[in-house]
């Protein structure tokens, strides 16, 4: 039931792209996800139990920061705050009832407060527990081509029926701007 114990060991984070698109634009794409064993610990049984216990809104707040690596200090060059939510609800969707034998299902709410309906539970988990975010920044912020950058993600969530409270930071490996 409690997958929290495993998660901080190997969260996945990487900057998959740091590219100078033009003289005006430098793009970074950051990917993050919780480790698979954490995700495997979240089951439909958890979800049903949480719903019965009136624990029906699971919100994760992400703060994504990009740093330029310095000799003494790292310089923050971009930051975004995002939140994603699951709302647990009683569905009358016959395809879900048939496929998963459950009437308690998840609705995703993205950072723009718009809904995402899922047909697949793994897809729903990916929605809440992973992130792919692209930043565009002004290249003047950097000393030169060849600067080293890394990303840091802080994730926070209150305690819920199937996860302990989360408040942790993870940092990606450093990559060089090309």
């Amino acid at each position: 039931m409690n997958a929290q114990a495993e998660y901080s060991k190997e969260p996945f984070i990487r900057v998959i792209q740091a590219r100078k698109e033009s003289a005006e634009k430098l793009n970074f794409t950051v990917e993050f996800s919780f480790p698979q064993n954490f995700l495997d610990g979240i089951t439909l049984e958890n979800i049903k139990e949480a719903y019965r216990n009136m624990d029906r809104r699971i919100k994760l707040k992400y703060r994504v920061s990009i740093y330029e690596k310095g000799i003494l200090f790292n310089k923050k060059i971009a930051e975004k705050e995002l939140s994603k939510k699951w709302v647990l609800y009683w569905t009358r969707d016959p395809t879900i009832l048939e496929r998963y034998r459950t009437n308690i299902w998840v609705l995703g709410i993205d950072e723009n407060l718009e809904s995402e309906f899922f047909m697949d539970f793994e897809e729903a988990k990916t929605f809440l527990f992973s992130l792919r975010e692209t930043f565009s920044v002004q290249p003047e912020s950097f000393a030169d081509k060849g600067s080293k950058v890394f990303a840091e993600i802080q994730v926070r969530s209150h305690r819920h029926y199937f996860i302990e409270a989360i408040n942790s930071k993870v940092r990606s490996a450093t990559i060089t701007i090309v």
């Binding site: 719903y51 029906r56 809104r57 009683w90 709410i109 407060l113 718009e114 809904s115 309906f117």
Partner: peptide, 25 residues
């Protein structure tokens, strides 16, 4: 999409007048 983001199931019935095992609405 905007409206559905406020989806919120209520507390349900603790003292229902009709007992049903499964939904037959």
């Amino acid at each position: 999409r905007r409206f559905s983001a406020y989806w919120d199931d209520g507390k349900g019935q603790e003292a229902p007048n009709v007992k049903m095992d499964r939904c037959q609405c």
